[in-house]
Amino acid sequence: MSADDTDFLAQRFEAHRGHLRAVAHRMLGSAAEAEDAVQEAWFRVSRSDTDRVDNLGGWLTTVVGRVCLDMLRSRKSRAEEPLDSTPHGAPPSPAHAAPADPEQDALLADSVGAALLVVLDTLTPAERLAFVLHDLFAVPYEEVAAVVDRTPAAARQLASRARRRVRGADVPEDDRVRRRRHREIVDAFLAAARNGDFEGLLDVLDPDVVVRSEAGVTTGAAAVARGASAFGSAALTARPTPVSRHALVDGAVGVAVLVDGRVERALRFAFVRDRIAVIDIVTDPERVARLDIAPV
């Protein structure tokens, strides 16, 4: 690979670095190890032919997933040791000289939660990877299967077993309080949307909130608030006479909207510092049927 090609690849890698670091952090539970995993991913990517890669972000997530899987498996056979910062002969990482961002580390730690990390440590490496990739990052089971070297059906079973263990674990008081607070935030969001309360929506939305649905993606608090307040309940609920229930939707805090006792659509939320950072709205009947929805 020429120097120009390496520089171009480094720029593309850097554009995905934050996402890759977040994936690795949730896999490994350590900011330092997450940096090591991203370093190793860069080493592997820099030695690969990426010309035929259509979805670089998805491919890089797969690479980082495999690196993390190797690191998790190594914990079973030896005491943890810091990895070399740069493998011998590898080109320098595009952001190798940049120090870790303490604020970003705090955001990641807050979104994971100490209790979840403890539970994740009880899972096998493959279960942990399947759960994190699918439930926290919405990676399709087909791609998860490629990382863990299983069939998509087996990858689904791995994630399902992990999900049951996570839900069945004892939840410390601070996590119960956090979950209750998140449900209150969701209630405030839905009430503000129904009432067309623009300011109330801005109060509970992260400035960089992302809303994803079959209709597309909306980003930014102002845009999301405008859409929610303009469409009100019609944008978030169903007819006739829907009933909304708090639920865990694929393991995340969410809302199930029922019509005649059947789940007609589901909303799944993610939070950063007590504000809504991601809203996934699923309305397609086939996708709804595949969701794991547990009433709260």
Rank of each mutant, 00 (worst) to 15 (best):
G58M: 03
F8Q: 15
Q39V: 04
R52K: 06
E35Y: 12
S74I: 02
G58L: 01
T62W: 01
Q11T: 13
P82M: 04
R26Y: 12
R12Y: 13
L69G: 03
H19R: 13
S85D: 15
F43H: 14
L72C: 00
R44M: 07
R21M: 09
A37G: 10
E80C: 02
W59E: 06
Q11C: 12
R75D: 11
D51W: 07
R21P: 02
G18S: 12
S2N: 15
S85M: 14
A31F: 09
K76T: 06
E80T: 06
D4F: 12
L28G: 07
H25W: 12
V64P: 01
D5T: 14
A10L: 12
A3Y: 14
H16A: 07
S85C: 06
L72P: 00
E14G: 05
V38Q: 05
D4H: 15
L28M: 10
R75Q: 10
S74T: 04
H16T: 04
D7C: 07
R26E: 15
E33D: 14
R75S: 03
A37W: 04
E40W: 01
A32S: 14
S74D: 13
L56G: 04
A32M: 10
T86H: 07
A22W: 06
T61K: 01
V38H: 08
S74L: 02
S46A: 14
L56A: 03
G29H: 11
M27P: 04
S74N: 09
N55W: 10
R78I: 02
V23A: 03
F13T: 05
E40M: 04
V53W: 03
R12T: 13
R44N: 11
A79Y: 04
R26L: 10
D54I: 09
T6I: 11
K76H: 11
D5M: 10
L60F: 01
T6F: 13
L9M: 13
G18Y: 08
A22M: 06
V53A: 00
V45G: 06
V67K: 01
G18N: 10
D49W: 05
D4A: 15
D54L: 08
Q11E: 15
E80S: 08
A37I: 04
S2K: 09
W59D: 04
E80D: 14
L56E: 09
G29I: 03
E14H: 10
A24M: 11
R78V: 03
E33A: 11
A15L: 12
A3K: 12
A3R: 15
E40K: 02
G18R: 07
M71F: 04
L83W: 06
C68W: 00
R78F: 05
R17M: 05
S74R: 03
L9P: 11
Q39T: 12
M27V: 01
G58N: 08
L72G: 00
D70V: 00
D84K: 07
L69Y: 08
E80F: 05
D84C: 08
H25P: 09
F8T: 15
L69Q: 05
P82Q: 05
L28S: 06
E33C: 05
E14T: 12
W59G: 01
D51A: 11
F8P: 09
E35M: 08
M27N: 09
D84W: 09
L56I: 06
R12S: 13
S48C: 08
A22N: 14
P82C: 06
D7P: 10
V63S: 01
A24H: 11
